[in-house]
Write a protein that binds this DNA or RNA. Structure first.
Ligand SMILES: [Mn+2]
Ligand SMILES: [Mn+2]
Ligand SMILES: [Mn+2]
Ligand SMILES: [Mn+2]
Lengths: 223, 223
DNA sequence: CACCAATGTTAGATCACTCTAACATTTATC
DNA sequence: GATAAATGTTAGAGTGATCTAACATTGGTG
């Protein structure tokens, strides 16, 4: 069954379930899914039941939600579409990295496999999207997660930003102002546990930047 | 109400109703709509009722189907999207003119107004799509129809192709083989009314081409 | 102009998706 | 470990889209 025979709703559910375990390994819950998608939990509960009936997830009432192999394949295909489209929108149509997520969220359900291939070719097979997230290859295993969140970084260490969560466009605009993006090199200055603030210096800049926990957790780095 | 708040189905219905009067002036019927969209007449009958309830068409049972002003605006916006997307697919992604219609038929419902604008800018505000159909401007009156069907042309006359119906991909591929496209200059050689054949010579070629009524009717020309 | 064929509409059903409200289960707290 | 809070599920309802089958209207043909 090709990805395109699933409803947009089903495609979004699968993508979300897969994404939940990409960076953190806690299994996703009905409540979180409802929150993210913007519907009521009862709607998700129902949707999950339909996915289970189609053999795309396993789920017993009140139990955990797991992708089947078929579900995982569809999910990865959707993530690939989403990230390729984001990259395309930035590279070819001149979008800002804060503008692409919502557009891709809709387009991902409408483009054909042919179009995905053409975009991939036009972009010369990019490996990362504008937020630094790896673009799963058309065939083969998606790149594994590397790095950790900036709020976990040790004071004094030097790190490189690998990805920034594309969840919140406002936050992305703020990072743009700061000059903070994937590939940025940072020195972690201090962490005040109870103040929930991480202070960093972007290499080449002459002052420190203070980031709250939410912002620091949106930034992934490697040593 | 922006175009995007209508269902894909409603958008297709409006586009189809508008398109029916673009080249020929006979009003569209429920049966023809059902045929084109690929659903049963009862489905269309129902859909039209919903459009009427939304104030996008006027229609009394067994009566004619007419767009309201609001309906016409949405329809033209959809036609613009469709034709810009077709042009984009050919110019930027290297599609053939026979491949774009179906892709655009889906994409037209998914792209944002912003993306339509960006595509329009990237393409330098094209005025015609790959089939020669005029692209309605973002604001203002769509270009009026010009020309007539090739099966109406007088033998001996010289004509220029302005548009070729994008309905049938196979026919487009055949025209490609023949070297026949918008802008082609032709001399009409003969018309055999009862044989239903129009013979033409494409300028620069050294033999005549015989076209059946269906093919000749798909080609629009100006003197 | 009566009748029939073509065309269009309504009735009744199903499916996916969504909601609110009521109910059930799990988990956290004392 | 009993109770309360949080979380998840089911029940019941509505919408849009689709179908088949039955019914209605319209428009030619004899
Ligand atoms: Mn989506
Ligand atoms: Mn992204
Ligand atoms: Mn369409
Ligand atoms: Mn076209």
């Amino acid at each position: 069954m090709p990805v395109s025979e699933l409803s947009s709703t089903a495609q979004d559910y699968l993508k979300l379930i897969w994404s939940a375990t990409e960076w953190a390994d806690k299994p996703i819950t009905v409540g979180v899914m409802a929150e993210r998608i913007g519907v009521k939990p009862s709607t998700v509960s129902d949707g999950i039941k339909r996915l289970a009936a189609q053999g795309l997830v396993t789920h017993a009432p009140y139990g955990s939600i797991e992708l089947t192999e078929a579900g995982r394949e569809h999910a990865v295909a959707m993530v690939r579409r989403h990230r390729l489209l984001e990259t395309f929108l930035v590279e070819i149509l001149g979008y800002g990295w804060d503008e692409v997520h919502d557009e891709a969220e809709v387009l991902e359900h409408a483009v054909s496999d042919l179009m995905v291939d053409r975009i991939d070719r036009l972009l010369k097979h990019p490996s990362r999207d504008p937020h630094g997230d790896p673009i799963p290859p058309a065939v083969g295993t998606p790149a594994a997660t590397v790095g950790f969140q900036l709020d976990q970084a040790k004071p004094g260490s030097q790190v490189t930003v690998t990805r920034i969560s594309d969840e919140d466009p406002d936050m992305l605009r703020y990072f743009t102002e700061l000059g903070l993006a994937p590939e940025s090199r940072l020195t972690v200055r201090e962490r005040r546990p109870y103040a929930d603030v991480t202070t960093v210096r972007i290499h080449g800049q002459d002052s420190d930047i203070a980031l709250g926990t939410t912002a620091a957790a949106a930034i992934w780095v490697v040593a």
